[in-house]
Design a protein around this nucleic acid. Structure first.
Lengths: 130, 130
DNA sequence: AATACTGTAATAGTTACATATTACACTAGC
DNA sequence: GCTAGTGTAATATGTAACTATTACAGTATT
């Protein structure tokens, strides 16, 4: 589990962790029953406080994505893949919708948006500089 | 000047106001020399505190977009259209980039993103329910 | 002068997020 | 039993954003 935290995107850190765990499960990078890194371990790796990771794990447990075994750790629940595959595109869709809404309200055309998407995607895939 | 505030998009209110003023100037909805609504007036219209509007206006003034005349109000500066036209797509681009970055990091394809853009755009243009 | 409007400023209180620190309860391995 | 590792919880601190309120300084109109 590698975790990328972007401090400048307006999404709380604990939520970014939640999202990335869900994506990893949807991808198959995390399998049912597999152990997650401990809160302390992930906190160090992501340069973040233990409480922040704990909050992410707690919410994922409440959503039924993770099983918590006190003293042992967190593991991917049996129901997790279904949940996460369902959420996979929806998570992106919601963020996208917010941007498109602003664009639409301010007289920006679909063509301009499409063009921005393609050019930015190309810029991101050429090299992971950002 | 009609101002749409979205409480759930992670962007501070004062910044949303800034952006919408800039878009309006870039669009030609606000012309050079034109008076903006007073801080109190816009605060009521947007259901927001006066201080929040004042902060947006102050920052726009510091960027050279607005001229402030104490006792009279704020007006669109001569330099504003150039600045705002330059920022127009860039503001959307930056938000878009952040979403695309998350999509890319989590194994979502360009095709899927393009499809989301088109379907969400259609959903937004069919009727302004959001 | 009086009034009503401007922007501006200062203060205080609230909420959300994140941090640092300490402690507790549980489990596994020796 | 001891130790080292789990998740969990409580407390305190700091910061950013927002609100509410009050006050002040300038301008325009009457």
């Amino acid at each position: 589990m590698i975790c990328h935290i972007d401090a400048g995107n307006g999404i709380p850190i604990y939520e970014q962790i939640e999202r990335q765990v869900k994506f990893s499960i949807a991808n198959g990078s995390l399998l049912v029953g597999e152990r997650l890194p401990s809160v302390r371990e992930l906190a160090v790796q992501a340069a973040v406080n233990v409480n922040t990771v704990a909050r992410a794990y707690r919410e994922l447990q409440q959503q039924g994505v993770l099983d918590s075994i006190r003293g042992t750790g967190m593991s991917v629940s049996a129901a997790a893949p279904d949940i996460c595959r369902q959420d996979r595109l929806q998570m992106i869709r919601d963020r996208l919708r917010s941007v498109l809404q602003e664009a639409l309200q301010n007289q920006i055309s679909v063509q301009e948006v499409r063009s921005l998407v393609d050019s930015e995607w190309q810029s991101l895939t050429q090299q992971d500089s950002g």
